[in-house]
Design a protein around this nucleic acid. Sequence first.
DNA 1: GTCATACAGTTCTAAAATCGAACTGTCAAT
DNA 2: ATTGACAGTTCGATTTTAGAACTGTATGAC
Lengths: 171, 171
Amino acid sequence: MKWDELEQEPCSMARTIGVIGDRWTLLILRECFLRTRRFEGFQSALGITRHLLAERLKKLVRQGVLRRIPYQESPKRHEYILTQKGLDLYPIMMALVHWGDTHMVDERGRPLLHQHRKCGKNFDPVMVCSECGEPLLAKEVHTHPGPGARPPSERISRDKPAKPKTRKQAA
Amino acid sequence: MKWDELEQEPCSMARTIGVIGDRWTLLILRECFLRTRRFEGFQSALGITRHLLAERLKKLVRQGVLRRIPYQESPKRHEYILTQKGLDLYPIMMALVHWGDTHMVDERGRPLLHQHRKCGKNFDPVMVCSECGEPLLAKEVHTHPGPGARPPSERISRDKPAKPKTRKQAA
DNA sequence: GTCATACAGTTCTAAAATCGAACTGTCAAT
DNA sequence: ATTGACAGTTCGATTTTAGAACTGTATGAC
């Protein structure tokens, strides 16, 4: 599987990964949400090589996640601003942050806190069901093919259910 | 910035990215949530090279995201199962899927639908505030330093507020 | 006993991506 | 005339990844 093929995969997650699923891109997007807008800002904040930064920004613009907007004439200079498509990545960012807050903090505690302007409190992001509002647990979700699914013949194979025939079973 | 340093960064998102922030790892985790457990299963489902798969699985086990459990003696064989830490990645996976469903589907529609067993309906995942239950919007969230933050002197520099002195402004 | 197959890796070389540093070009301020 | 800010581009060296073959245990078929 090549990386450009990812975006054609019949899997929304694979397609998303094709757009934002590499380390630098995710960090660039973090900076975007922290209001960094300019080339030098990204570069000095992240320490990414200028070469890669230019490439990643181009790709994000091509994908419609960022818009390149002139903020100055002569010499022409541009800022990179999140589009609505880019702003919609916010739940992904928050989910990443929250997992890190839960599982990767040291004894010092969380590096950042998030305050919800609506209610004024520091909060954690919680993922809930759009229909009943209950928090989502992996075990309570059943996945089934939608209209964009490929027929089984086109689909990649998966594990067969564990049935090792007559082999000695482990304790 | 090297990739092993990411996990020490004073940013929960960077730390999370250090663990799961590459394309193959995310796809491996997708397979885990689709109940793939074995080496051959991952390999044939993803088309990943065996070399990289072995490496990524080792890393996920080291990080405590997967557990390697024997399911058969002689020859010893193991399955890779999500730990609680791994199961907690579910909101990230759902957020990725949902963004793809929103912005990356073709005319055929969504490849997969998700049904919530609790309420029986097909749903979208929604990220809400843990305190007031309202859906989260980036504009309504204020970020501020927590106990694990570094003092400004240690912090990476960011864009200055746009103030191009006496330069000709763009229209 | 011999052969083919399943499974879970490891090893090796070639190709691709990334790093690090220097370079280009426009313009403002001194 | 020189320096610095900014937004890139270029290029050789290093690191990762791809692709394919190989290792080793064990099973079932013949």
